[in-house]
């Protein structure tokens, strides 16, 4: 989340790599302290960062390194890992370049799952973003009950995936209320059912995910809009700008950083999307709305194929990393240079 705020020094969030590449920042004092002060400084740093770093290394870094190690082994997760067989890059090959029966059984479903992740990213940008922005712009004004409306729209975000999943399962049941409504309108519900139809399942899942996460985007945008200077809007209005021109020329550009950071979070979230997909039927009976993470769990761990599952996890990590770094370098960098100009 957010808060690029304002250091005004080009130190946006999540841009560690870039900042270090740029060398010492302008105006950062060179180490002027004498030796014992330096030791004291390091002690202070240790005191502040130490606890967080320790917890992080033990509970995140070590297990993650273990997962990387597993990915080079054939291991059924039942016998001890010490007895597992080293297979080099076989697990990666099976996921990405499987041939013959392996292509059909492993590579194709994996690439399908991966393409779903990217479709979700594209759809989020093409559907969720404009929709959330539009709603935020429309709601960005005073009217009675505004607070209540904002609270309600944001509410799905705080509901757990389990609860959301159970709820939508009841509603989108083959004979549930959604089917009845659609049929009352003279239409047909999907032939295989909402979630399990090969063609509709993905869209249904995207709808449920959007239901849960659209409110977050709206609230983030509203918060961004609440910070846009009213003087600017007013000045534009006096110059004869229409409502839409004010939105297009002032509000939208000024919440650009908020939008870009939402997009970043949305992309990372889309790549890692798991809980929701899992709670709805583990990516679907035919993988019709599987994601890389659900594929990893279903074809890796639930099949006692831990080495393979770990390889998928590593691939997912690498993709997130590349996408994140790319996004930061290309898009978020602009925010920082814009800031510099200001």
């Amino acid at each position: 989340m957010t808060f690029t705020t304002a250091s005004g020094k080009g130190n946006g969030p999540v841009v560690g790599a870039k900042a270090s590449a740029a060398g010492p920042r302008p105006g950062s004092p060179k180490n002027k302290q004498p030796g014992n002060a330096s030791a004291r400084k390091w002690a202070e740093i240790g005191l502040f960062v130490g606890p967080a770093l320790l917890v992080f290394l033990v509970f995140v870094v070590y297990p993650v390194i273990s997962a990387v190690r597993y990915s080079f082994y054939k291991w059924n997760g039942v016998k001890q890992f010490s007895e597992a067989e080293f297979v080099g890059l076989d697990n990666y090959r099976r996921a990405l370049f499987g041939q013959g029966i392996f292509k059909k059984a492993y590579t194709e479903p994996f690439l399908t799952a991966l393409s779903h992740n990217f479709e979700i990213i594209a759809l989020s940008m093409a559907i969720q973003l404009p929709l959330a922005l539009l709603v935020a712009l429309i709601l960005n004004r005073q009217f009675r009950g505004r607070t209540v409306v904002r609270v309600i729209i944001f509410a799905p975000y705080v509901l757990s995936e389990v609860i959301t999943g159970v709820m939508w399962f009841v509603i989108l049941d083959p004979n549930g209320i959604a089917t009845r409504i659609v049929e009352a309108l003279g239409l047909h519900s999907p032939a295989g059912g909402w979630f399990e139809d090969v063609h509709w399942g993905f869209w249904t899942m995207f709808f449920v995910v959007s239901w849960k996460y659209l409110g977050l985007a709206i609230i983030l945008f509203l918060a961004g809009l609440s910070g846009v200077s009213k003087e600017l809007q007013e000045a534009a209005a006096i110059d004869g700008a229409s409502w839409w021109q004010i939105q297009r020329r002032i509000n939208i550009p000024l919440i650009g950083p908020t939008i870009r950071i939402w997009a970043f979070l949305s992309i990372i979230g889309s790549i890692q999307l798991f809980d929701m997909v899992w709670v709805l039927n583990r990516g679907g009976t035919q993988g019709q709305y599987s994601t890389v993470a659900s594929y990893m769990m279903d074809k890796g761990f639930y099949r006692s194929d831990w080495g393979y599952g770990s390889a998928i996890a590593v691939i997912m990590f690498l993709i997130s990393l590349v996408v994140a770094i790319g996004y930061m370098l290309v898009i978020l960098r602009r925010d920082n240079s814009t800031t510099a100009k200001n």
């Binding site: 009841v170 083959p174 519900s189 999907p190």
Partner: peptide, 14 residues
Amino acid sequence: QDQYLSSKAQQDPT
């Protein structure tokens, strides 16, 4: 039955 791909084994009425 219709939409058998969406039916669970047990639990709910459908």
